[in-house]
């Protein structure tokens, strides 16, 4: 994949994260939602996990945060590792860990 595609995804996801985080915080606080105390109770959480809207919201948030974070880690590592072969190995390692964490994060939603 071209470097510019990766960076473009990084920029778009950065903007998406801001919107998703604001939505997430609004739904938990008294601004829209019930407030932190009630929002974190077992009943509310289990109720939300059963809703397709919340499933979609948190899947999107998980995907956006993980992708943005892992692209960022890749960029930082590439600053210090200049050997092309090592970069390819690091890149593959990062994407494998990324997929494992993405699946792990989606387990509550899948189950």
């Amino acid at each position: 994949m071209k470097e510019s595609y990766i960076r473009f995804i990084q920029y778009v996801l950065g903007a998406a994260i801001v919107i998703l985080i604001l939505l997430h915080l609004s739904l938990f606080t008294s601004f829209i939602g019930p407030g932190y105390e009630e929002g974190l109770s077992w009943e509310t959480v289990s109720q939300r996990m059963a809703s397709p809207f919340y499933d979609m919201l948190y899947t999107l948030l998980l995907f956006a945060l993980l992708t943005h974070g892992f692209i960022g880690i890749r960029n930082i590592i590439f600053e210090y590792v200049t050997n092309q072969r090592t970069r390819v190995i690091i890149s593959w390692t990062i994407w494998i860990v990324y997929i494992i964490l993405l699946i792990y994060g989606m387990l509550p939603i899948i189950s």
């Binding site: 071209k2 600053e79 200049t82």
Partner: peptide, 8 residues
């Protein structure tokens, strides 16, 4: 267009 180019 590479990590060692304008994106660096």
């Amino acid at each position: 267009d590479s990590p060692d180019g304008c994106w660096g």
